[in-house]
Design a binder for these strands. Structure first.
Length: 103
DNA sequence: CAAATGACGTAGC
DNA sequence: TGCTACGCCATTT
């Protein structure tokens, strides 16, 4: 299985996350059939074209945090989009119990 | 080709 | 609850 195929599968899975929900890198990796590739999921998102319509903002880390330096511009952007979809943060964290997407 | 890197995760203390 | 170590693995140096 080529990494390009994995990349496609990962993108499809992320695209299936409904608005108002979030998922984690690790969970997505598992769904793609590669449980140990959480980091790979991250690198896929990192290399997305700027104008891509992939809902990258619905992906956070397993601790419910946005994986960007706290207060950075990217952090702020992701937080704003999430809140506009109804995903509220408690301080700097998202309540996974409440918003995590688990089909 | 060895070593470092990174939008991560888990275990242990 | 927080911090440190380690594991992980495709990519990049």
């Amino acid at each position: 299985m080529s990494s390009d195929e994995l990349k496609q599968r990962i993108i499809l899975i992320i695209g299936a996350i409904p608005p108002g929900s979030v998922s984690t890198y690790g969970t997505i990796a598992k769904m793609a059939g590669i449980p140990t590739h959480a980091r790979f999921v991250g690198s896929v998102l990192r290399n997305l074209p700027t104008g891509s319509r992939i809902p990258w903002h619905r992906v956070i880390n397993g601790r419910g945090e946005i994986s960007f330096p706290y207060g950075s511009e990217k952090w702020q952007t992701q937080k704003d989009i999430l809140e506009s979809e109804g995903v509220l943060l408690m301080g700097d964290k998202v309540r996974l119990k409440q918003y995590l997407w688990q089909p």
